[in-house]
Nucleic acid binder design. Structure first.
Length: 460
RNA sequence: GGCCCUGUGGCGGAGUGGUGACGCUGGGGAUUGCAAAUCCUCCUACCCCGGUUCGAUUCCGGGCGGGGCCUCCA
């Protein structure tokens, strides 16, 4: 089944064919680790994790190389380190660890490679030297700058014209630039800022240079897919292209450019109960990571998505329904199955997650309708395979409903006892006592469901 | 000022040149001691104005509205 992906450069959906099916290469601009990441930072991480999973399925996991970098040299990191009077590594180590924990909670697989900027200074210096030697870069006042006029293709990815951009320039132009659009490859470090020796003097790399050097070193000169948020199209990716192509005899940097749309995090649209909580670190105190992941995938990745408490609540409702089905099918042995072809086709169509979710929903409806064991076994197998592809439904259904978020509630054992007491009251047709016990549990946000084989409960 | 994206039912959100995805909410029914869960069922759309067409929500043009980018923000 062919995979079609929307390519920003050509502004079209195109059939995806890797240059080498034995080694599909993908790069995502990862986080700058200076603070807690907010949910918007994770949209690309989740979306392209899904693409990673889809590519795994299509080409085999051993044939997909996915690099997501860690930017650990940056002004904001320096500022945080200075403020706390610590070495930048204290900041970057801490937030790299937290980023990985948040990622794991969101069901994001570890990428094949996680290169760091500080681990590639040597490669950056080599890249800059090559650009200087070929006349694509120049030195001025301790800086090394890339000369955009030396590259014909500048602006092609973003569809911009250099002349047009000047009109809207809103930042003061540094005096050392030959052209206002020239960008920094290397800059001098201030006192107490991290600094590396180089042929162009001590200093640190510019942001764009990091990604070009890490891609070149880890994945090669031309990769299959380069991904990131829409805001990176210009200037970041435009600059990466300029640097890499000029350093590589005009060989393209990436065959497909993919960009996710933004979350609408407008605080005025947030309800009171959600407040202004946007950090994943905080959201995870209130919602299972899987709810966040499901919500992020509920809209197509290129569309904007309004991030609200209502969205999360609705998502929780749906997941509860799904886990309820799986809970009822707990004793059914799932068949070896793959995800249904319609669901795979939806994902292969430029990651059409809403359509894939619709197929998943149909699967659950069928599973709820099924009366024959063979149907249940087949559907459960398809559901679990779909869940694995989407990075969802990985929890044990029983614990999904019974894990308690807050401390001031009953233990599972205490609840079991109350439910058992209610069951015996029901056997004696003592409806008053049974209803009293159910009411008591309801007040503690425990919902009891009576079935033919007794009662089950869940936290609501 | 330039460039890009976008406007679907009470809400979220796909898709299509002609039989109104999917989910949430709401109404009715089955089931239940009553509920819950589940199933069945019903209601509510395609921003406005032109054009193309036998036929447009879908294509084209214009208008109005929303969002994003324009030097280091996913």
């Amino acid at each position: 089944m062919t995979i079609a992906l929307y390519d920003t450069r050509t502004r079209r959906k195109r059939d995806f064919e890797p240059a080498n099916p034995k080694e599909v290469t993908m790069y995502l601009c990862g986080p700058t680790v200076y603070s807690y990441a907010h949910i918007g930072n994770f949209r690309p991480a989740v979306v392209f994790d899904l693409l990673f999973r889809v590519l795994h399925q299509q080409y085999g996991s051993e044939h997909v190389v996915y690099a997501r970098n860690i930017t650990d040299v940056d002004d904001k990191i320096n500022a945080a380190a200075a403020e706390q009077n610590v070495d930048i590594s204290v900041i970057t180590d801490k937030f790299t660890k937290i980023y990985r924990e948040d990622s794991s909670a969101l069901g994001i697989l570890p990428p094949s490679l996680e290169p760091t900027a500080t681990g590639h200074i040597e490669q950056m210096i080599a890249l800059i030297s090559r650009l200087l030697a070929t006349g694509h870069a120049y030195q001025a006042e301790g800086h090394v700058l890339f000369s955009v006029n030396s590259f014909d293709g500048y602006g092609k990815l973003s569809g911009r014209d250099l002349k047009d951009m000047l009109a809207g320039a809103r930042v003061e132009i540094a005096s050392y630039k030959q052209d206002p659009a020239d960008f920094v490859l290397w800059k001098p470090s201030g006192a107490n800022e991290p600094s590396w020796d180089s042929p162009f003097g001590p200093g640190r790399p510019g942001w764009h240079t990091e990604c070009s050097a890490m891609i070149e070193h880890n994945l090669g000169t031309t990769i299959d897919i380069h991904a990131g948020g829409q805001d990176l199209i210009f200037p970041h990716h435009e600059n990466e292209i300029a640097q890499s192509m000029c350093a590589h005899d005009n060989v393209p940097l990436a065959r497909f450019w993919m960009h996710n749309g933004f979350l609408d995090l407008g605080s005025e649209k947030m309800s009171k109960s959600l407040g202004n909580v946007k950090l994943v670190h905080d959201l995870l105190k209130q919602w299972p990571g899987e709810v966040l992941r499901f919500a992020l995938l509920s809209a197509h990745y290129r569309s904007p998505l309004e991030w609200t408490a209502e969205l999360l609540q609705r998502t929780q409702t749906v997941l509860n329904r799904y886990y309820g089905t799986l809970r009822r099918l707990a004793d059914v042995a799932a068949d070896e199955q793959t995800a249904p072809s319609g669901l795979i086709a939806a994902l292969h169509d430029d990651l059409n997650t809403p359509q894939a979710m619709a197929k998943l929903s149909t699967l659950f409806k069928q599973a709820n309708q099924a009366t024959e064991l063979a149907d249940k076994q087949r559907l459960k197998g398809q559901i679990l395979a779909s869940g694995q592809l989407l990075g969802l439904l990985a929890h044990d259904p029983e614990s999904w409903f019974k894990q308690d978020g807050s401390a001031d509630t009953l233990s599972a054992r205490e609840i079991d006892e109350l439910v058992a007491a209610r069951l015996s009251a029901r056997k004696n047709k003592d409806w008053v006592e049974a209803d009293r016990l159910r009411q008591q549990l309801n007040e503690l946000k425990i919902i009891v469901e009576d079935g033919p084989d007794g009662s089950i409960w869940r936290r609501g």
